[in-house]
Write a protein that binds this DNA or RNA. Structure first.
Lengths: 345, 345
DNA sequence: ATCGTTGTATTCAACGTTGTAAAGAACCGC
DNA sequence: GCGGTTCTTTACAACGTTGAATACAACGAT
C-alpha cells in the first residue's frame, strides 16, 4: 500500500498557511482572504487533496451514513424502494449502506440492537422475521446506558417504541383490492399469502382486510380459500396456486398478498391452461415493474414508494438532528388500486 | 443527542486498568491474565461498550467498506448481483456500500476518480456510460501523487489499466444464443439492444457474437433486423419490438441483449396477438428470476452471478492486502445457455 | 492616541482507537 | 542472588480532522 496519503498538513505546508486555514477553505468558511483562498486551492489541486471522511466523522461524532436494512435486495419491491431511499438520502447529503437481513431473526436482531453502531448514524428498517414484541423487548433492555440507534420502521409497528413508523393502511388496501374482485362478480375469492408466524404482521393485516371485504360484499368465509405460504417469492405463489387448484377449492379470483406471489400464481394458472382473468382474476400488492409487463398485466395495490422513501429519510434526518427527544411519529402513506388486465381492466 | 458515548476510557476506569489493556482484550491479544480479562469483560458488558469503528478505521487507515457501483438497484440483474456481492463480502468481514450511478457519465466519473475515497477501501464497478478510453484517461492523469482507488471492473475492460476485470465471454455467449435460434430453423433472427454510444462495450460485443452466428449459420445479414435501444429496460424492449414489427422486417426470432429487453419484447408480441415461440422465438441474456416465471418462460444466457460476485470480492480483497503492486488480472466466468419455453424448449 | 470592532489567521486540544517502546513483575538457570 | 528471559501491563504518540479560544492586524470612532 504505497498510496501517499495527502492530508491537510501537506496542503498547509505547500500553501504556507496553517492547517486550520486549509480546513477553513475546504469547509467554505467565510473569513478567508481571496488571496490565501486561491493559494490554498491551488495547493489542494496540485496535491489532489481529498478530505479524509473517516477523520472528519470521528471528530464530528457522526458518519453521515444511514443503513437501509431489508430482507433481500433481489425482491423487486425492496430494490425499487432502495433506489428511492438512496436517492432521497443523497439529496440530504447522506450515504446509504444496505444491510441484507435475509429475513432471518438473527440478522434482524443485530440490526435492531444497533449492529455497526458508530459506523452508521441511524437505520431505516423493514423487519420481516421479528415481531413488534421482539422489537419492543430489544429496545427496552439493550443496556442501562445507551439509547437505541435512531430507527425508522417500515411496515411493522411497535406500540410506544422509540422508532418512527411508516406504512400504508394495509387493511384498507387489502380490503379495496378484494372488493374490486368482488365487484367483478367473483364469488370464490382466494387469499394467497397467509402466514402462521406471529411475526408476520403484514400478512395478518392484509388477511384482515380481505375478510372485511368478504363480509362487506356478503360473501361467505371459506377458509379453504386462504392459502398459507412460506415466503413471499414467486415460487411460493406458484406452489400456493397449485395447491389451491388441486384442493378443489375452485377459486374464480385470488388476492395475492404481494406481486411476486401473484406472478407465481399467474404462472401456474397459465401453465395449467386456465385463462386469466377469464377463469381466475388476479390482484397483487406492491406494484412492481414486473407486473406492468406480465401478460396479462397485473392489477395491484400501488403504495407510493417514492413517498415512503422520502419520508423515511426525512424522519431519520430530523431525528438525527434533534436527538431522541422527539416523540415517535406515525406516518401513513397513500396507495391506490391500479386496475390492469388480470382483472379485466 | 444525549447518547452517552462509551469509550475504552470508561471501560478502563471501571475495570481499573489502562486503556490499552482494554483494547488488548477487545482485540483478543494473547498475553492478558485470565483475571484481568474477566474483569475487563465484565466492565465491557456492564457499560455495553461497542468499539467505535470510525476511530479504529482512522487509526488503521482502512475502513473495511467496499463500494459496489452499479447503474440502478432495481435492474434485476444488478439486484441479484448485489445480493451475492454483499454476501461474499460479509464472509470476508467487509461491508458493502452501494452506489447508484444511474448510468450517467457524471456519476460514473466520480466513482472512477475515487469518490468517497477514505471512506471506502476499494470499489467493484460496473460502468455503463463510460467507455474504456474514458476510464483509461481518468486513471492516467488523476494526479501526480495519488494512485487510483483499488478497483475491480465488471463488464467493461480497460487495456493496461490498473484494475482487475471480470466478465463472461460476451461474444461467445451471444453467438451461442443466436446459433440456438438458428438451429430451431429460424431464418430472420433479430438483434434487440444495439447501441450507438461508443461507451456501450457490452452491446458491441453481443452484436458481434450475433453477427458471427449469422455467418456461421449461413444466414444473410440484414441490418433492418438490428434494433437500437435507448437503455436496457423492459420499456425499451417493448418499444423496440413494436418498431421491428411495424417496420415490416418480419422477424421469426429475436436475440435480446438482456432479459429485460426480452420481457418487454415478449409483452409487445403477446399484446399484438403473436405467439411465442410459435411466430417469434425469443432469447435473452442474464437469467434473471423474472424470466423463469414469465409465460412462456424465457430462454437465456445464464452467467454465473455467484461466481462473478465471489471472484470480484476475492480479487478486491487480495488487492487491498497486497497493494497496487499486483498486476491487473483478467478473469472469465462461465455461462450457460438455458433453454426454456420461449424457444420451444 | 486610545479603545473597541471586525476580519483573518493561528494554536491547542480533542474525537476513540491502536502500534511502539518501554516499564514492571515473575520466573528461570546458574 | 544475579543477569537474563518471558509475561503482563502501561504511557505515549500518532491517525486527520475541526471547535474553541486566542493572537494579530487593520480600521473607525471616540
Amino acid at each position: 500500500m504505497d498510496r501517499p496519503r495527502v492530508g491537510l498538513k501537506d496542503v498547509a505546508q505547500l500553501a504556507g498557511v496553517s492547517v486550520k486555514t486549509v480546513s477553513n477553505v475546504v469547509n467554505g468558511y467565510v473569513h478567508v482572504t481571496p488571496a490565501t483562498r486561491i493559494r490554498v486551492e491551488a495547493a489542494i489541486k496540485e496535491l489532489n487533496y481529498r478530505p479524509n471522511l473517516t477523520a472528519r466523522n470521528l471528530r464530528q461524532g457522526r458518519t453521515g451514513i444511514i443503513a437501509l436494512a431489508v430482507p433481500e435486495l433481489d425482491i423487486p419491491y425492496f430494490a425499487e424502494l432502495a433506489r428511492f431511499v438512496v436517492a432521497a438520502a443523497e439529496q440530504r447529503g447522506l450515504t446509504v449502506l444496505i444491510d441484507q437481513t435475509g429475513a432471518t431473526r438473527e440478522r434482524e436482531q443485530l440490526v435492531a440492537e444497533g449492529f455497526r453502531a458508530h459506523l452508521i448514524d441511524g437505520v431505516i428498517f423493514s423487519p420481516l422475521a421479528l415481531s413488534s414484541d421482539d422489537l419492543a423487548a430489544i429496545w427496552e433492555a439493550p443496556s442501562t446506558t445507551a439509547s437505541p440507534i435512531p430507527t425508522v420502521l417500515l411496515g411493522e409497528r411497535v406500540h410506544d417504541g422509540p422508532a418512527d413508523h411508516i406504512a400504508v393502511d394495509n387493511v384498507a388496501a387489502a380490503k379495496e383490492a378484494t372488493l374490486h374482485l368482488a365487484a367483478l362478480g367473483r364469488r370464490r375469492i382466494a387469499a394467497v399469502g397467509a402466514q402462521d408466524d406471529a411475526a408476520a404482521e403484514t400478512s395478518r393485516l392484509r388477511l384482515e382486510g380481505y375478510r372485511l371485504a368478504l363480509k362487506e360484499a356478503g360473501l361467505p368465509r371459506d377458509d379453504r380459500l386462504v392459502v398459507p405460504v412460506e415466503a413471499y417469492h414467486r415460487a411460493d405463489g406458484a406452489q400456493a396456486m397449485a395447491e389451491l387448484l388441486d384442493s378443489g377449492a375452485a377459486p374464480d379470483a385470488a388476492f395475492c398478498f404481494n406481486d411476486l406471489l401473484a406472478l407465481g400464481a399467474l404462472r401456474t394458472l397459465l401453465e395449467r391452461g386456465h385463462s386469466v382473468p377469464g377463469d381466475v382474476a388476479l390482484a397483487g400488492f406492491d406494484d412492481i415493474e414486473d407486473g406492468r409487463y406480465a401478460t396479462p398485466t397485473l392489477t395491484t395495490i400501488s403504495p407510493d414508494k417514492r413517498a415512503i422513501a422520502r419520508r423515511a429519510v426525512d424522519l431519520l434526518a430530523d431525528r438525527l438532528a434533534k436527538g431522541p427527544l422527539v416523540a415517535a411519529r406515525e406516518i401513513e402513506v397513500p396507495y391506490r388500486l391500479v386496475v390492469r388486465e388480470s382483472t379485466g381492466g
